[in-house]
Design a protein around this nucleic acid. Structure first.
Lengths: 210, 210
DNA sequence: CGCGCAGTCCATCGAAAGATGGAGGCGTCC
DNA sequence: GGACGCCTCCATCTTTCGATGGACTGCGCG
């Protein structure tokens, strides 16, 4: 029996997941959390095999307590449960950061219930689970690693997208302004542009960011 | 008994809505659709009082067959059901377009189940239903029309979004760089920001651009 | 007609951003 | 161990942006 915890800030989605998962054999939803703190507190008590985690959680204004944060925190526990990301949109940055934080898999919310259930089973067994659209994107990146942005660079791009100046980005990422500029030069080169505003335009086009 | 149809491309969300609404007295979910075409076909057969509609539907690549399209089509029927928009994010543009298309109300998916149920009842009675965050935003806009961007300014914003420099924008719009800067100053003031990248961020947030 | 507003243009100046060319630490892979 | 990629940091210099404070035109409205 696979013990599952749901983490999503939308009550409707949690109810939907319950409705979809409850009839399935071999697994049981034994906990629900609506934010990162709750999720971590419940995970600490143990007895959970797989966490179904939404990346966007409420109260993410600070930009820290989102699903990636929760994933990293949960995976840092001793004998941690597997974390399966279940979110709405595909963003390269999100996928990479989530996997880096220790996520076992990444599925989209519009996957069929059966796929979801089998995905949970695979995750419980420790297998990596990636939905087809996500796997395809990752393969695209591997095909041309010179163009692929590093995790750090993606973080910079995200900051650009919300309109941060070099100084603001430096503060938020705890690095110097010089380093931000350095990253920017590399990003410009990889994306073939020459200004921060164009970075955001290209990144959106390619789905690097939401 | 209020007869409800669910329109959402995510099976999980539909299941969640069912789970939330089924226990409620006085209403029954009698139909589900996962895209605009299905929704329209089912609505044409009649017997539905309220449609719960997600704005983002699958196959929206063309940008046409989304929830707004479906709403307009359904409201064009004779003796149409009320349409209550139920979506994830707030975008001023979406709200305005949906209301223009004939939606009776607009709620966010993270509203509490009770609010949702009472919202459906209100919608069935023909009352306009706007969640607090949405109503607040609309009031903000109405209260201060000086914030509205002019047509020319919106053109500038669009150019910013694709990453144009002042010089490039000037060339494309056949004006001088000085004029572009002048427009920018006005835009900064209206949006309350101080850089072109933040203009794009805020404009996206408010739905001023795609 | 006067008034306000949108759109156009101008000059100047300080502050960011971007270009250039480094350098060292650190982990991985062969 | 050495090569390589990533992240970090630095200084210098040029270009672009953004802030400021104007000015002129055309248009609609009362």
């Amino acid at each position: 029996m696979i013990r599952v915890m749901l983490v999503d800030d939308h009550p409707v989605v949690r109810a939907g997941l319950r409705a979809v998962l409850d009839p399935a054999d071999g697994l049981a939803v034994i906990a629900e959390a609506q934010n990162a703190d709750e999720a971590l507190a419940l995970a600490e008590r143990g007895g959970i095999d797989v966490v179904l985690m939404d990346l966007r959680l409420a109260g993410t204004a600070a930009g820290e307590r989102d699903g990636v944060y929760a994933t990293a925190a949960i995976r840092a526990l001793k004998d941690p449960p597997r974390v399966l990301i279940l979110t709405t949109y595909v963003s390269d940055a999100d996928v990479v950061r989530a996997v880096e934080a220790g996520a076992t898999g990444y599925l989209l919310k519009d996957t069929a219930p059966e796929t979801l259930i089998s995905g949970i089973a695979s995750a419980a067994a420790g297998e990596t689970v990636l939905g087809p659209p996500i796997a395809a994107r990752l393969l695209d990146r591997l095909a041309d690693p010179t163009q692929a942005l590093t995790v750090r660079e993606l973080e910079i791009v995200e900051q650009l997208a919300v309109g941060g100046s070099n100084r603001e980005i430096a503060k938020r990422l705890f690095i110097s302004e010089a380093t931000v500029k350095s990253h920017l030069v590399h990003i410009f080169g990889k994306l073939g542009v020459n200004s921060r505003t164009k970075v955001v335009a290209v990144a959106r086009e390619r789905g690097l960011i939401s």
